[in-house]
Simulated scan of single mutants.
Amino acid sequence: MDSQMKMAFEKSKTGDKDERYEAYHTILKVTDQNVDWAYEVWDQLVEDLNHKDNHQRSRAAQYLANLAKSDPEMRIMKDFPKLWEVTKDKKFVTARHCLQSIWKVAIAGTSQKEMVMNYMVVRFKNGTDEKNFTLIRNDILHNMKNLYEHLHDEDIKETALDLIETVDDKKYKKKYMDIWK
């Protein structure tokens, strides 16, 4: 990792608000592509999933999701449950930021896609007792749409449409179908 990226990770934690924001965007932009330094920050990011600061948890989750494509050792398969826990964070905004980026793990490979899809399907079906479950379902369906657009996998679309069919509330069923138009 070059010194500029090291500085971005440092500033994303310790800089002032503007520096943190700029560093955050720099890291997400760079990690949108495959990088060869993922393991230099991996363990720290996994540790930061439990950081006392919800902003740190959110950033760590989003960075890890982006870095999954740069993970030839497939560490994400072991660390994913820790990442998924952040999608249930006590701070709902943190949970949503993590959940909205979780689809990026699935583009790393077939095993990762199957794992992420399984987690999302289970949450969609069994999460109705969660606060804001309709927003969570919305995010899950957007994740599936993003995956579908990235991978062009008809099974993903079929799964999403099958899940929407299980929704009884007509208002939300229509809202969810609009995602797939």
Results as ranks from 00 to 15, higher is better:
M1P: 09
F9N: 05
E10T: 14
K11P: 05
S12M: 13
D16N: 15
D16T: 10
D18A: 13
D18F: 09
E22C: 07
T26D: 07
I27S: 02
K29G: 08
V30L: 09
T31I: 04
D32V: 01
N34M: 11
V35A: 02
V35F: 04
D36W: 03
Y39E: 02
E40G: 06
E40V: 08
E40N: 11
W42H: 02
D43Q: 14
L45A: 03
V46D: 07
V46T: 10
L49M: 03
H51K: 12
H51V: 08
D53S: 15
D53H: 14
H55R: 15
Q56R: 15
R57Y: 07
S58W: 02
S58D: 08
Q62D: 02
Y63S: 00
Y63Q: 03
L64N: 02
A65V: 08
N66V: 00
N66M: 02
K69N: 04
S70F: 07
P72H: 11
K78N: 14
D79P: 03
F80Y: 12
P81F: 05
P81E: 05
K82A: 13
L83F: 10
L83G: 05
W84E: 07
W84C: 05
W84Q: 02
E85L: 10
V86A: 09
T87W: 03
D89N: 11
K90N: 15
K91L: 11
K91M: 12
F92T: 04
V93M: 12
V93K: 14
R96E: 11
R96S: 12
Q100R: 09
I102Y: 01
I102F: 06
I102D: 01
I102K: 00
W103R: 00
A106Y: 01
A106C: 04
G109P: 01
G109I: 03
G109V: 00
T110V: 10
E114M: 08
V116I: 10
M117A: 07
N118D: 15
M120F: 09
V122P: 04
F124D: 00
K125R: 13
G127K: 05
G127Q: 05
T128M: 10
D129N: 14
D129K: 15
D129I: 13
E130M: 15
K131T: 14
N132M: 14
F133G: 01
L135C: 06
I136L: 00
N138T: 10
D139Q: 05
D139C: 11
I140C: 05
I140R: 01
H142D: 01
N143H: 06
N143Y: 01
M144W: 03
M144E: 03
M144D: 03
K145V: 04
N146C: 11
E149P: 07
E149K: 15
L151D: 02
L151T: 03
L151Q: 06
L151E: 04
D153A: 00
E154G: 01
D155Q: 13
I156G: 00
K157H: 11
T159F: 00
D162H: 14
D162I: 09
E165K: 15
E165M: 11
D168Y: 11
D168A: 14
D169V: 10
K170N: 12
K174M: 12
K175Y: 06
K175G: 02
Y176M: 05
M177A: 12
M177E: 09
D178K: 14
I179K: 06
W180C: 07
W180D: 03
